Simulated assay, not measured.
Amino acid sequence: MSPRPGTAEPLLGPDDEARLRDAVTDAVLSAPRGLREAIEQDPEASLALVSASRVAAEETSRLLSEAVANARAAGHSWDAIGRLIGVSRQAAQQRFGPAGPPATTGPERRVGGDGPERRVLTPLTLFDEMVVLEPEARRGWHMVDFGPLYLVVEASDHAWQHRRAVWSPAAARALAEQGWQLVGGWSFPWGYYKRRLDLPAEP
């Protein structure tokens, strides 16, 4: 699926769009157990359908916001994103534009407050954030928060490892069994993970 610069054509073809819409509809009708069977006979099932549809709408809205953040981190313009969702560049930026990284002070962008020292690594993209994070992790900085174009890291006495993987509950469970800790939930489509090493932080 390659972008089509300068056009308003969607990246999904009609068949893909139809499959996706069918999958969402099926999920809504399947999530409350027995809803599909009860909808014709039980008046309460109609309210359950409203509730399930609300949850689906909230979740798809969240996924869209995080997908836009991911596209921005991959270097795509607001104009390209706006064309895909059918709004102007300005409307896309107003709706989905990030609040920005946490407030910082000083030339090394140190985050104030009590507890271990924290720093904001920015600007970063989807393609360089893990490369930038790797040497910081060897020096004892581990990831504690993230957002569009930035990561927040915290100082420690140990070296760390980090990884990013396409999110799925199965992948999260498998990584947890290997000692990986999910950082701050997940951000569609990614899960960020860290693991402390039995090595002192490098100077």
Results as ranks from 00 to 15, higher is better:
G112F: 00
L63R: 15
P200E: 15
W141D: 00
D145N: 14
Y150K: 05
S46V: 09
L149Y: 06
R95F: 00
A71Y: 05
E136D: 04
P101N: 08
A159M: 02
R33W: 01
A52Q: 01
R196P: 08
L133V: 12
F188K: 07
S77F: 02
R19A: 14
A69S: 14
G115D: 14
M1G: 14
F188C: 11
D157V: 04
F96L: 06
A201K: 06
S65P: 03
R195F: 03
A172D: 12
T7F: 10
A48G: 11
E202N: 07
Y192F: 15
A71E: 13
T122G: 07
Y150D: 11
W160E: 04
A165W: 01
L20K: 03
A23E: 04
S187R: 10
A201Y: 01
R72K: 12
L29M: 12
L151F: 06
G97D: 07
A52K: 01
P102T: 10
F146S: 05
A159P: 01
G106E: 10
A18T: 08
A31I: 05
S168C: 05
R119K: 14
G75T: 08
D114T: 15
E58L: 15
A69L: 05
L151E: 00
V153S: 00
P32A: 04
P43T: 03
R21W: 08
A171E: 12
V28D: 00
P203L: 15
R95T: 13
P10Y: 02
P116S: 12
T122S: 15
V120Y: 00
G179E: 11
G34F: 02
R118L: 06
T25A: 11
G75V: 09
R118V: 11
R19Q: 13
A23C: 07
D22A: 11
P43F: 03
Q93M: 12
E129L: 15
V153P: 03
S187H: 07
D26S: 06
R118T: 04
V55Q: 07
V131I: 14
S187N: 12
Q178L: 08
L124F: 10
P116F: 04
A172K: 09
T125R: 10
R33E: 14
E9F: 05
P200F: 15
Q93R: 13
W160C: 07
M130A: 14
H142Q: 09
L20R: 04
L149C: 13
R21A: 15
V111H: 06
V50A: 07
M1P: 10
S61M: 06
P189K: 10
A67S: 13
L35Y: 02
A172W: 01
E17F: 01
V131L: 12
L197H: 08
G82L: 09
A99C: 09
V28H: 00
Q90H: 11
G185M: 11
E66P: 05
V87M: 08
A52E: 07
T104V: 15
